[in-house]
Design a protein around this nucleic acid. Structure first.
Lengths: 231, 231
DNA sequence: CCGCGTTAGAGTCATTCTGACATTAACTAC
DNA sequence: GTAGTTAATGTCAGAATGACTCTAACGCGG
């Protein structure tokens, strides 16, 4: 019997911190209703179809199980140890996705789908080796050399520097000096100031910025990044 | 028909430069004797067995086709586009290996196995999408944040700073200042000076150094690095 | 209307890091 | 011994970084 080929996706979003606390990373999980590991929470995913690429399979299974359509999808790692599933040989290609902040929580209404904070004790154990996959995704995210585009995928089209700094702080797990953060971003040229300001706050309105991909830099992104299916 | 699951490995070694020129990266390839792509050079590899992990499959197929047993093996990427093989659906997990410099050239005596310089025009085209895989391996190598252990895998147990600098120069593709190179390495603490010197040269004998893995640093290595089979 | 609290945004300063270059040490070849 | 070559150390200026201060612009409560 040939091994089963499947995809699983770690989707990360940002949840705003409460009471001035730091922002938090969170992710949606699916409760398993079949054996093995029935009842445990698992990463969304499913088998790879015969007529779709691996990235397409990741996007499709993600939409089917959670209703989410992230705008960033990157291959993470392929897990193929013999005993990772108790019933059969299972090879899983894990993907890594990021969501806009305004879509966090906009999941299908289903009691078997839920968002968890990354450090929620409920998901200290997960189905299969999925906890290991999540930890690896976090390790990869924290070791990214280029956060610019990652951050703007977690936020919307326009964002304040404070929001962007919140993303960095959530990823890195420590507070950053606002002044120095501003200085470094101003020198990267991948973040551009707009002439708009965010109104409605109680204090001085912050300027809105937007991300501009830096044109002819072939090694900017993982060159094999896979786009999710459209529509 | 389920997809065929295979592994392929990009093995990189260092070849000393001629006439004071820079060192060069090179890799062994296998000539295909069957269709499709018969006659073209390809990465060593083969199908994944039912009772072996993916890393074990990479090590096994590598030894079988080339006789090489590298001491560093890291998963690279999984290629699964529908049309990457003209005859059937083929999903390949690509691995990345490094060889000691004294083993470069110590390949099985076979006219269908040969080492090529990384920029050899003979391998501008390769079987399947293997050229793309090689380019991706090079991109990953050049973007490594931590060269220390990578470099010492390409060299032997003990090495001179000049040899280590040659590795860095071959990977990065540019010359480095010897004095500054020495300074930075002295401050990393992962390279340790021995009290031995390399004799036999025509000039002042250089001190030998060795790599010391830095104990309790859990994120030092890719946590999912797979060890090749022993023996 | 006016001060106050809060956050946005600009600026300062000392320390560290980096690249470029100069200098001395130790060997071989002749 | 002298020349030639590489190893190893030292110096210095400019860039990058972290900690901190200072001013600007808003809402709010009197």
């Amino acid at each position: 019997m040939p091994p089963t080929l499947a995809v699983s996706t770690v989707i990360l979003g940002i949840r705003e911190g409460v009471e001035g606390g730091p922002d938090k990373l969170c992710l949606p999980l699916v409760r398993r209703i079949r054996q093995p590991h029935a009842g445990l929470w698992a990463l969304p995913g499913g088998p790879v179809g015969a007529r779709e690429s691996l990235g397409q399979a990741a996007g499709r299974t993600l939409a089917e199980t959670t209703g989410l359509r992230p705008n960033y999808l990157e291959q993470l790692y392929t897990f193929g140890d013999i005993d990772r599933s108790p019933t059969h040989r299972l090879v899983t290609i894990a993907y890594f996705a990021l969501m806009h902040v305004d879509q966090v929580g906009a999941t299908v209404r289903d009691e078997n789908v839920a968002w968890f904070d990354i450090d929620d004790p409920q998901i200290a154990r997960m189905a299969f080796d999925h906890r290991q996959i999540v930890d690896y995704a976090l390790w990869r995210l924290r070791n990214k050399t280029e956060y610019g585009q990652i951050a703007h995928r977690l936020l919307g089209e326009r964002f304040t520097l404070a929001a962007l700094r919140g993303v960095y702080e959530a990823i890195l797990g420590r507070r950053l000096d606002p002044a120095n953060f501003r200085r470094t971003l101003n020198s990267t040229a991948s973040i551009e100031a707009t002439d708009e300001y965010q109104a409605g706050g109680k204090h001085r309105p912050p300027r809105l910025y937007r991300y501009v991909g830096h044109g002819p830099d072939p090694l900017q992104v993982d060159p094999l990044q896979v786009e999710p299916p459209q529509g």
